[in-house]
Amino acid sequence: MRNRDGNYAFSLSICSLILTNSLVLDASEYLISYRYTVQDAILYSEKLQVAHAMKKCEGKAQKPLILESYADNDLQKTLLANSNEFIDYIHTLGLHVRHRSLTTDFQNKSTTVLTLKTTCFKVDFNDNSAIIAPIK
């Protein structure tokens, strides 16, 4: 018959592995990137990407932004609920501008892409608010 105590060491090692990973992967750090494209003076596409940081970010937290948060520690939902404030805040951090225009026989077409390169943010969730600060 199989000894039940034999699984104890295995369970312990799994638990310690999970605990170690949860300590190493800082849950309050996120990677955020944002990009939007304007074609011929009309907004063409917009993309905001949010992901947990898989390793600890180096640097110090900079100028923070405080957002109302009703979602249960869900950064994506919090950012979508306060998208205008957050996008205005992103603009203050600095965006990369890439513009291309083509004029053929006096007819002009243009494309402008504004990009926030993938940046690490420290996020602290409180009762009804989330404090977001870029780490640089």
Binding site: H91, G94, L95, V97, H99, T103, T104, D105, F106
Partner: peptide, 16 residues
């Protein structure tokens, strides 16, 4: 026959 002008800008803008 054909006239083409291409312009491009690449920059980083902060604190506007």
């Amino acid at each position: 026959q054909r006239s083409t002008v291409r312009t491009s800008v690449d920059a980083m803008v902060r604190n506007a």
